[in-house]
């Protein structure tokens, strides 16, 4: 079970899962494109999904990969409901797919469910990914990295 599902109260988990269905992609299958409508989202059950962005002259660059247990997509939560990045399957990927509009409607319908889901996505997905992105901005392994873990550059 993914951290997100494990974190939900039992009735909320049932409510969410009732809106989900199993899907699978073959290796290399494109799941969504940058700028496309964010009308679904997924919980990855197995396999790896690459988030990418196309840079003219440099090709399609992978900025992050998501693996087992992770939430694929959160642009569906906020307007304008458009994907900020593209996603492609790396190897065979199994996932649970949710219809974004249906889940949003359920969140509006039962604010306690909506709040819990939003909190879990904030704490388990949005926050860590923001932190990871900031950490990578530091380019910690770059330039003046140390010689072997105990001392300085000499």
């Amino acid at each position: 079970m993914t951290a997100l599902l494990a974190g939900l109260a039992a009735d909320h988990r049932d409510r969410l899962l009732a809106l989900g269905r199993d899907v699978a992609w073959a290796d290399g299958a494109r799941i969504f494109e940058e700028g496309g409508p964010a009308d679904r989202f997924w919980l990855v059950r197995s396999g790896l999904v690459a988030l990418d962005v196309h840079v003219p002259g440099r090709g399609t660059l992978v900025v992050e990969t998501l693996g087992e247990g992770e939430l694929l997509g959160w642009s569906w939560l906020f307007e304008p409901y458009r994907w900020q990045l593209g996603a492609v399957a790396r190897g065979v990927v199994d996932a649970i797919e949710f219809d974004a509009a249906a889940v949003r409607a359920a969140m509006d319908d039962e604010p306690a469910f909506g709040l819990e889901l939003l909190r879990l996505i904030g704490a388990g997905t949005i926050g860590p990914r923001l932190h990871a992105a900031r950490t990578r901005l530091l380019d910690l392994y770059g330039g003046g990295q140390d010689t072997a873990g105990t001392g300085p550059a000499r």
Binding site: A3, L48, A50, V62, V63, E64, T65, G67, E68, G69, E70, P128, A132, T135, R136
Partner: peptide, 10 residues
């Protein structure tokens, strides 16, 4: 995989 090493923890 692409990302920081802590994302592998789970």
């Amino acid at each position: 995989e692409v990302g920081v090493v802590t994302t592998l923890l789970d």
